[in-house]
């Protein structure tokens, strides 16, 4: 099993279970034991998960990937000590950012639910052509990817959370806007998209929106 086997779902599962940080250790680029260079896939997973955490208002620095070979015991110790120190400084997940337990759960559940979709997006749009760490950093921080992320993932994430709320019970736009912390215009945009896809219906009598 390679670092590239680390699934986005594993990382999210750990946070859902209350982990305050996730550390991934991999072989140095160019030193792949499988020659498949799966460590670059791990790098991509980590870049992506950091963007997702940021989107959810969770500190992206809670995920850390480091290259450490089997012979670098002392480096491993240094890195681990440093990471646990940093995570301690960040405080418990959610609380640190002033998030309620429910709010955090809603966000992580939405991300978890989106994993298959995110994998498709990654495959279609987020593969980095050049295998170098700088190229990955540049790519994932580029404006183009930022835009793509907003279009393809950020909106989906909000819709996901909205749908989760609506599946609980019908709610008003005001209520949705308040819980999700989004502007009414964003909510109505998401509602329009969802309605077109047949995901939501309007309960005109009570002026509430319900899951279809």
């Amino acid at each position: 099993m390679c670092t590239g086997r680390v699934d986005l779902a594993f990382i999210l599962r750990a946070f859902s279970n209350g982990a305050d940080g996730v550390f991934i250790g991999g072989c140095w680029p160019g030193e792949c034991h499988y020659v498949t260079e799966g460590n670059y896939l791990a790098l991509s997973t980590v870049h992506l998960s950091r963007k997702l955490l940021k989107l959810a208002g969770i500190g992206p620095e809670r995920v850390r990937l480091e290259w450490i070979s089997a012979s670098e015991g002392s480096r491993f110790a240094e890195v681990m000590n440093d990471f646990s120190l940093k995570v301690r400084e960040l405080g418990p997940i959610g609380n640190g950012a002033g998030m309620s337990e429910d709010g955090l759960k809603l966000k992580l559940d939405a991300l978890n639910a989106m994993v298959p979709y995110i994998k498709l997006v990654e495959r279609e749009r987020l593969r980095v052509p050049v295998k170098s760490e700088e190229a990955y950093t540049q790519f994932f921080n580029s404006d183009a990817v930022e835009r793509l992320f907003k279009e393809l993932i950020a909106d989906k994430f909000e819709i996901c959370r909205m749908m989760a709320l609506l599946r609980e019970k019908p709610r008003s736009t005001g209520e949705l806007s308040q819980i999700l912390g989004l502007s009414p215009s964003d909510i109505s945009r998401h509602l329009n998209v969802s309605a077109r896809q047949g995901l939501v219906k309007f309960d005109a009598t009570r002026n509430l929106i319900a899951a279809a």
Partner: peptide
């Protein structure tokens, strides 16, 4: 060779690395 990269990329969970399944 069992590196499992396919497993982590599969959007539908159709491919599984045995002994290290999801």
């Amino acid at each position: 060779k069992g590196d499992g990269l396919c497993n982590s990329r599969c959007p539908t969970g159709a491919i599984t690395l045995k002994h290290f399944t999801d």
